[in-house]
């Protein structure tokens, strides 16, 4: 668990991050989303102390991050950036082994770990271990970057626009892979992005930042249904891609089974042929949490909730 307490960073008179407090749950993915200059990268970099805060503190599993030197702290926190920053003079295996070597791991422990990570990221160790970064495609570099960040089994993984340099098709695949990795290794991940679709797709919880402050920090569906700020509403409203996905699925396909005796218990009735997008806007319009899906002849066929629709949107 990461606890951020009134974290502030001033550059001269300007506050890049202004009194941010938030708690990041264990083994979850938290996404910080905002426009450039919103302070999201500064906030992320203060967690691993690449930037020293002006005031406030960060606790990881109850321990103040300021209690040890910055570079020692960072060896236990994975870090992935846009462009990855792979060391061009080192092979893939050598790159991945960087932090374990800094920590003084035994070579007999490093080698299998590198192979395990390469396999987990769908890179054949026999093929990729000896390659140099410039011999890899963008997607492969990204995966090596993630493997390198995970090498020393960090409890926390920080990612700053990790998919920013990928083209859209590879990006979706990389996002899926990340969700898979998270399930597999159970790491607490904090991801910074400017892309609201990416935020909704990845985040268990999403923090929207603007001008150094966190406007809202909650589950994605809450951001959509109950935006705390006009800016949040505008950003979530622009989550077009997710919406487009919703318009491709009908209410009949997505309907949840009715529990016996519950028929017609509340909310608007929607036809099974309507798209989820229509259902969602209907629900938001009525301020209702759930709707009843009805057949052409009016018989209730199932039930839909806002949460279920958003879950579908995120699962593509």
């Amino acid at each position: 668990m990461i606890v951020i307490e009134s974290l502030t960073k001033h550059y001269g008179p300007i506050a890049a991050v202004d009194g941010v407090s938030m708690t990041i749950e264990r083994d979850s993915i938290t996404v910080i989303v905002g426009t450039s200059g919103s302070g999201k990268s500064t906030l992320l970099r203060m967690i691993n102390r690449l930037i020293e805060p002006t005031s406030g503190r960060v606790l990881i599993d109850g321990r103040d991050t300021a209690s040890e030197s910055g570079h020692r702290l960072r060896r236990h926190i994975g870090y992935v950036i846009q462009g990855y920053g792979l060391f061009p003079h080192r092979t893939v295996a050598h790159n991945i082994a960087t932090v374990p070597r800094l920590l003084g791991w035994d070579e007999n422990r490093i080698r299998p770990r590198v192979a395990q990570l390469l396999e987990a990221l769908q890179l054949d160790p026999a093929v990729y271990s000896g390659k140099y970064p410039h011999q890899l495609s963008g997607g492969e570099q990204q995966r090596v970057g993630v493997a390198r960040a995970l090498a020393a089994e960090p409890a926390v993984l920080l990612m700053d626009e990790p998919f920013g340099a990928l083209d859209p098709i590879i990006r979706e695949k990389a996002q899926d892979d990340l969700l898979e990795i998270q399930r597999k290794f159970g790491t607490t991940m904090v991801v910074v992005t400017h892309d609201i679709d990416e935020a909704f797709r990845l985040g268990d919880r999403v923090a929207v930042m603007s001008a150094g402050r966190v406007l809202q920090y909650d589950r994605p569906e809450v951001l959509v249904t109950h935006p705390a700020d006009p800016l949040v509403a505008r950003m979530t409203g622009s989550a077009e891609r997710a919406m487009r996905l919703l318009s491709l699925t009908t209410a009949g396909e997505a309907a949840l089974p009715l529990t016996p005796g519950e028929a017609g218990t509340g909310g608007p009735a929607v036809p099974a042929s309507a798209s989820l997008r229509v259902v969602l806007s209907e629900l938001l319009w009525h301020g209702s949490e759930s709707a009843t899906v009805i057949d052409g002849d009016g018989t209730p066929r199932g039930r839909l909730t806002v949460a279920a629709i958003l879950a579908r949107a995120r699962a593509r």
């Binding site: 570079h71 020692r72 236990h76 920053g85 792979l86 060391f87 920080l158």
Partner: peptide, 11 residues
């Protein structure tokens, strides 16, 4: 990016 990654990994 390489320098940032190096610091970020705890060098």
């Amino acid at each position: 990016a390489v320098l940032e990654a190096a610091s970020g990994m705890g060098m």
